Simulated scan of single mutants.
Amino acid sequence: MDQHIVEATPAAAEAAKLEAFVGKAVSDLAAGYAGVMVALGHKLGLYRALLGAGPLTSEEVARRSGCAERYVREWLNAQAAAGYLDYHAVSASYELGEAQAMVLAREDSPVFLPPAWEVPASMWFDEARTLEAFRTGGGVAWGEHDARLFCGVAAFYRNGYRASLVAEWLPALAGVVEKLSEGGQVADIGCGHGHSTIFMAQAFPKARFRGFDGHPASIEAARANAAAAGVADRVTFEVARADAYPSGPYDLICFFDCLHDMGRPVEAARHAARTLAPDGTVMLVEPFANDRVEDNLNVVGQLYYAASATLCCAHAISEQGSHVLGAQAGERRLAKVFQEGGFGRFRRAHQTPFNLIFEARI
């Protein structure tokens, strides 16, 4: 009897591991479905219909959003099952709590996430390109991806930048706030849709800002965003490579979540060193990562490694340069890039769960 128990235990343990892993995989699959539901809820105004309204029935949500009730009812049940809404069985009603609203409905919240689901949507749309890249070792340039990528990335980072850039990150750099308050010239490299540039321009009206990006469609979007924000008189956007934008001298050069995408990051750092003012500063913002793989095996690492495999590494490879850093480069490798680029000082100035903020000086 005892022998039978000993022999059965390893098999039982393996079966339990299998069951647990199947549960995890199904949970991840359900999360993918939930992303589709979130995108629908955002674009159809369903979250706005629920915002601040207390418990609502499916009929009330449908009426407020202008959608068909039978579809809305099924969407509400999917959201309740995912924990994205609270369900009240007695009244058969649904409620968007405040924490849920911060993530799903309040568009100025630093943790507002619905547009971020445009990124995996673009990954699926670009699957054929990614399969070919994996098989051949070739690259996929940023501009070759589905347009949902650019909008999703810009929206995902925008609110985080709005909450932290001026309030926390710039003050963590020695003397930069004082310099920009008095004037100064700023270059935003890899500016994308220009949100980071615009937030700085709004905070420092005496300074002048130039955004550079290699993607023409993003530069067009950035110009429109600057005009809408009323800062086009002191912000310009141009198509330019990270190692070939016009000289300053610049008091501050920024790289927001873009250096790791570059095939020639050392050249980008070297060009920054050439175009800095004598006492200028580089602010490097990169995805949060530890230096060792085993220290990045968590949810944030899962997110960034997946994006890196399909987007970041793919673009760096397309440039046929010297590096493929990836989105989990880590401080040690980034410091080496700037050391080789001619910088004598490099330090971690600040960090968040999603970003590392570095200061580099000559």
Score class of each variant (00 low, 15 high):
Phe209Thr: 01
Ala240Pro: 09
Arg234Asn: 03
Ser218Asn: 12
Asp233Ser: 15
Gly214Glu: 03
Arg234Asp: 04
Arg208Leu: 02
Ala224Met: 11
Arg210Lys: 14
Ala229Cys: 07
Asn225Asp: 13
Ser196Gln: 13
Asp243Ala: 13
Ala201Met: 08
Ala232Thr: 05
Ala229Glu: 02
Ala201Cys: 09
Val239Pro: 05
Arg210Ile: 02
Lys206Arg: 15
Pro216Arg: 00
Ala201Asp: 02
His215Ile: 14
Gly211Val: 02
Ile219Thr: 09
Pro205Leu: 00
Pro249Ile: 06
Ser218Trp: 01
Pro246His: 02
Ser218Gln: 15
Asp233Cys: 07
Phe237Glu: 01
Gly214Asp: 00
Lys206Asn: 14
Pro216Gly: 06
His195Pro: 00
Ala203Lys: 02
Arg223Gln: 15
Arg210Thr: 07
Ala222Pro: 13
Phe209Leu: 09
Phe199Arg: 06
Val239Cys: 09
Ala232Pro: 09
Asp213Thr: 06
Thr236His: 11
Ala222Tyr: 12
Ala227Phe: 09
Ala224Lys: 15
Phe212Asp: 03
Pro249Asp: 01
Ala228Gly: 12
Gly214Met: 13
Val231His: 10
Ala228Pro: 10
Asn225Thr: 08
Phe204Asn: 02
Thr197Tyr: 06
Pro246Tyr: 08
Glu220Tyr: 05
Ala226Phe: 10
Ala201Tyr: 06
Ile219Asn: 05
Ile219Ser: 03
Arg210Leu: 12
Thr197Asp: 07
Met200Tyr: 07
Gly248Lys: 03
Ala227Ile: 08
Phe212Ser: 01
Tyr245Ala: 10
Pro246Gly: 00
Phe204Glu: 04
Gly230Ala: 06
Gly248Ser: 01
Pro205Tyr: 00
Glu220Trp: 03
Pro216Gln: 04
Thr236Lys: 13
Ser247Asn: 04
Arg208Ala: 05
Arg223Thr: 14
Ala227Arg: 15
Ala222His: 12
Asp213Lys: 11
Ile198Trp: 08
Phe204Thr: 04
Ala244Val: 10
Asn225Leu: 14
Gly214Arg: 12
Ala221Ser: 03
Ala242Asp: 11
Ala244Thr: 12
Ala228Lys: 15
Ile219Arg: 05
Asp243Thr: 06
Asp213Phe: 09
Ala224Val: 13
His215Tyr: 15
Arg234Cys: 03
Gly214Ala: 12
Ala229Ser: 13
Thr236Val: 13
Val239Trp: 08
Phe212Glu: 03
Arg234Gln: 09
Pro205Arg: 05
Ala244His: 14
Ala244Cys: 11
Gly248Met: 06
Ala201Lys: 12
Gly214Asn: 09
Phe199Gln: 06
Ala203Cys: 00
Phe237Trp: 02
Gly211Asp: 07
Arg223Ile: 12
Pro216Val: 00
Ala201His: 11
Val235Trp: 10
Asp233Lys: 13
Pro216Ser: 00
Glu238His: 04
Ala221Met: 07
Ala222Ile: 09
Ala242Gln: 10
Arg241Cys: 04
Tyr245Val: 07
Gln202Tyr: 04
Ala240Ile: 08
His215Pro: 01
Ala226Val: 11
Thr197Lys: 05
Ala203Phe: 02
Thr236Ser: 15
Met200Ile: 05
Ile198Glu: 01
Ala244Gln: 13
Gly211Tyr: 03
Arg241His: 14
Glu220Gly: 12
